[in-house]
């Protein structure tokens, strides 16, 4: 029983990290129809920035995370300006290829700059809390709480600010949005900034438990794609739901089925879903 609770909490932790990454991916897809393949690598860079802020400059964990968010927002905007904006009228497969190029570039740059070693963000919240017979490190609770706070913040931002509701309007109808005089460029840059901040937050939160290394974005980006396909590409609630479904499935699957194949689970789910429903579970406007 305790094992079940323990693994459920682990699943929630994992789901929280997935969620922050997948939310950014689905936002970008919703606004620009760009499958941002480099998104996992923004997550990676976010992890490195936090790591170096703490170890090189001796900054506080939270301050480092905030700096990382700012750096990533700038990087995200650069990515939008230099790669995706020039490609906006290209065929969709070319956008995908450009995104792959950006991904390869970021990963190789990380290797050049920081080497291929595995690093770990220093853990400052590694006390063990015992709750109802289950032992948890504080960091896991911080991850879950952090993800929830950011999700609420994103919700408030989208529903209750002018610029946020513009994003939502554009996600629902891109052509209509440009008709009513929304500055499409500004919204695109802002979306990339927000998505990158979420990715860097995910990395800052996960860093003390999982490791930081140049290839850390590859697996998570593919899982994030699986999540947004499950949840419907462009859908925000779908991304949240999909993340926790995947996190829990993986965590429980690893315990009760086979830990060896736990990474296969995500992709097997996707193949299964697309085999039955070729346009995804919650496809909008499918013909």
């Amino acid at each position: 029983m305790n094992l079940l609770i323990q693994q459920t909490v682990n699943g929630l932790t994992l789901g929280s990290i997935y969620c922050l990454v997948a939310l950014g991916l689905t936002l970008i897809y919703g606004i620009m129809e760009v499958p941002n393949f480099a998104h996992g690598h923004l997550y990676m860079v976010g992890g490195y920035v936090t790591f170096f802020m703490m170890t090189l400059y001796g900054l506080n964990y939270w301050v480092s995370a905030i700096i990382s968010g700012i750096v990533l927002a700038v990087l995200g905007i650069l990515l939008e300006r230099l790669v995706f904006n020039p490609m906006r009228n290209s065929p969709s497969s070319n956008k995908f290829i450009a995104a792959v190029g950006a991904m390869l570039f970021l990963e190789a740059s990380a290797r050049v700059l920081w080497g291929s070693d595995f690093r770990s963000i220093p853990a400052i919240y590694d006390n063990v809390v015992v709750m109802g017979g289950v032992r948890l490190t504080e960091q896991r609770l911080i991850i879950i709480a952090g993800a929830v706070i950011l999700m609420v913040a994103l919700y408030v931002f989208i529903k209750h600010t002018m610029i946020g509701s513009t994003i939502e309007a554009m996600a629902q109808n891109r052509d209509g949005a440009s008709l009513v005089g929304i500055d499409v460029n500004r919204v695109a840059m802002l979306t990339f900034a927000v998505a990158s901040i979420l990715a860097s937050a995910a990395a800052s939160l996960a860093g003390p438990i999982f490791l930081v290394y140049p290839g850390m974005g590859s697996l998570i980006i593919m899982k994030a794609f699986v999540i947004i396909v499950i949840g419907g590409m462009g859908s925000i609630p779908g991304a949240v739901l999909g993340s926790f479904i995947l996190g829990l499935t993986e965590s429980l699957g690893a315990t009760y089925l086979s830990s060896n194949y736990k990474d296969v689970v995500a992709f097997a789910i996707l193949v299964l879903i697309l085999s039955i429903k070729p346009s995804g579970l919650f496809a909008k406007g499918a013909r």
């Binding site: 969709s92 995908f96 699986v226 590409m233 296969v264």
Partner: peptide, 29 residues
């Protein structure tokens, strides 16, 4: 299966097939 999907779904689907083959080769000790 994959040609029943379109656009980005097709790309992601085939990518996942690649990942699955890769993972199975790696894990099937």
């Amino acid at each position: 299966i994959s040609f029943r999907t379109r656009g980005h779904y097709f790309v992601i689907f085939t990518l996942c097939i690649g990942v699955i083959i890769n993972l199975v080769i790696e894990k099937w000790d």
